[in-house]
């Protein structure tokens, strides 16, 4: 597994091709998340992303381990950006490879669902109206709970 936290941008297509070139890969599923221009009717100027170094990497590693124990997957890469991000910028990329597609599909969704609630990142939105720390979304908590119910 590869886990990278960085300020710089990255290419999701490069992440996909890197996994597809490895042995035993029949499928690569990817998720990429971007900064939206609008949030609750407020036009975003930019966003600041903060994280807890050390715990972030540990949390992401633990999420990938959980996914590996549930599905037969080959490789996983997570890249998450921190620092100042502008509208339309890429924030996060998750790629999962497997022999057959369904395992990679499920594992990729599982990883991003848990990343949303368990990996210590915080977003602050800066708009013309001022600054606001983003509140957690109930939908994210419900999505994570659904996986727990499947156990």
């Amino acid at each position: 597994m590869t886990i990278i936290i960085q300020e710089d941008s990255f290419s999701i297509s490069k992440m996909i091709s890197e996994l597809s070139e490895k042995d035993n890969v029949g499928a690569v599923v990817s998720f990429s998340g971007y900064v939206r221009e609008f949030s609750k009717e407020r036009q975003l100027k930019y966003m600041e992303l903060e994280h807890y170094p050390g715990m972030t990497e540990k949390a992401l590693e633990s999420i990938i381990q959980k996914a590996k124990s549930r599905w037969d997957i080959e490789e996983t890469t997570i890249i998450h950006r921190v620092g100042k991000l502008s509208p339309k910028d890429i924030i996060v990329g998750v790629t999962v490879s497997s022999k057959h597609r369904s395992n990679a599909f499920m594992a990729c969704e599982f990883i991003i669902d848990f990343l949303k609630t368990d990996a210590p990142f915080w977003k602050k939105e800066i708009s013309i109206k001022g600054e606001v720390w983003v509140a957690e979304r109930q939908e994210d908590i419900i999505k994570k709970t659904k996986w727990n119910k499947l156990d």
């Binding site: 998340g33 949303k116 368990d118 990996a119 210590p120 957690e136």
Partner: peptide, 10 residues
């Protein structure tokens, strides 16, 4: 000991 608001990454 770390204290923080709910997580909002991704």
């Amino acid at each position: 000991l770390a204290i923080f608001p709910p997580i909002t990454g991704g």
